[in-house]
Design a protein around this nucleic acid. Sequence first.
DNA 1: TAAAGTAACTGAACATCGTTCATAATTCAA
DNA 2: TTGAATTATGAACGATGTTCAGTTACTTTA
Lengths: 202, 202
Amino acid sequence: MARRSDHSREEIHEMALSAAEKIVREQGYGGLSARKVAGAIGYTVGTLYLVFDNLDDLILQVNSRTLDRLHAQMLQEQSAHAPARERLLQLGHSYIRFANEDPHRWGMIFEHRFPPEQETPAWFRVKVERMFALVEARLEPLAGEHSANEIAQAARALWSGVHGICILAITDRLDIAGVSSVQQLTQFLMDNFLDGFISGCN
Amino acid sequence: MARRSDHSREEIHEMALSAAEKIVREQGYGGLSARKVAGAIGYTVGTLYLVFDNLDDLILQVNSRTLDRLHAQMLQEQSAHAPARERLLQLGHSYIRFANEDPHRWGMIFEHRFPPEQETPAWFRVKVERMFALVEARLEPLAGEHSANEIAQAARALWSGVHGICILAITDRLDIAGVSSVQQLTQFLMDNFLDGFISGCN
DNA sequence: TAAAGTAACTGAACATCGTTCATAATTCAA
DNA sequence: TTGAATTATGAACGATGTTCAGTTACTTTA
């Protein structure tokens, strides 16, 4: 048996999350199991339940970290002095690149369902909002006469679109292959949408 | 024991699919199990495996029928003599209404993953293509100078966008409630995209 | 009518899953 | 040194998908 001072609670917690991330990256959501995680960190199942409420809890925390990494990468890959429209496109490309580099971990954010009628945790909503905010911020300087409400709508519509392309492409529902095609399609969507939204040539 | 002439293979096949659809509608993808389906039609698990290769096979066939119903509904709800742009919007609204009326059955199309590295069945691709074709057909009269390839791209970009809104809304990732809000957001996306795509005010 | 043959169906068995909890092992305090 | 507190274990439970030897029901043959 591992000695009780080998690892603190916090260390086990961290080790389990890392191990889970590795398993998901390599084997996907379906390949994740409590016993696998426990085995990977040299403990048994029981120990996992001292540190997490249950598997859902563990998955939720993995997803939380994935959302954090995604947000960080989207921020980091922004070129600070580029025009807003270009930065908007960069956000889309970052998103797609992230999803493509680790499709299983990205996918688990959307594959995992919260237990029946236990509503989405507040912090999860916050992290999603945070992403929309990123889009809104780039949209604002382009929006001209549009109201704040319209900008919020535009961010959600546009970003759902990017997400839609991404998820259909990755789960092989679109008939396109390769990151560049996906990014091309995304650019196509964004270009036309922004042309319509900005100039309002109506 | 059920007598061997009680039901033909085909009847059992049909009964199982119907029972599975009911279970999925009421309890979602996660609530589906071989024993539940078998129990619901008055047979045991073993019998199910005389009629289906495995659960994946059964799920795939349920999804196939869902795609058929979706396609039929989208076709049926088109008003034949409306302008192309309006019919395009109708397609979007049909899609959202369908997803909203039976979210679990619609959702299973996208939740279910094909077993590792067994690629998407050809007939599945066909049924997805069939849907894009519907969009392309409405897009064509609006497309002006755009090439066939650009129309195909537009259909995929636009429809991925509609799907993205739909899936994020239904899985509670957008902060909007109710069908009408979702349809409003979809209209917003389509309007701006089409403004950009059609007039090409560039 | 009796026996043999065939098709239909069963359900116990296997490995794996999430989850629990009495028990054992280890450390700490007195 | 001893007793209390902490920490980890792993067997157990009820699910899951899947298989397949065995039983039952029906059909054909003699």
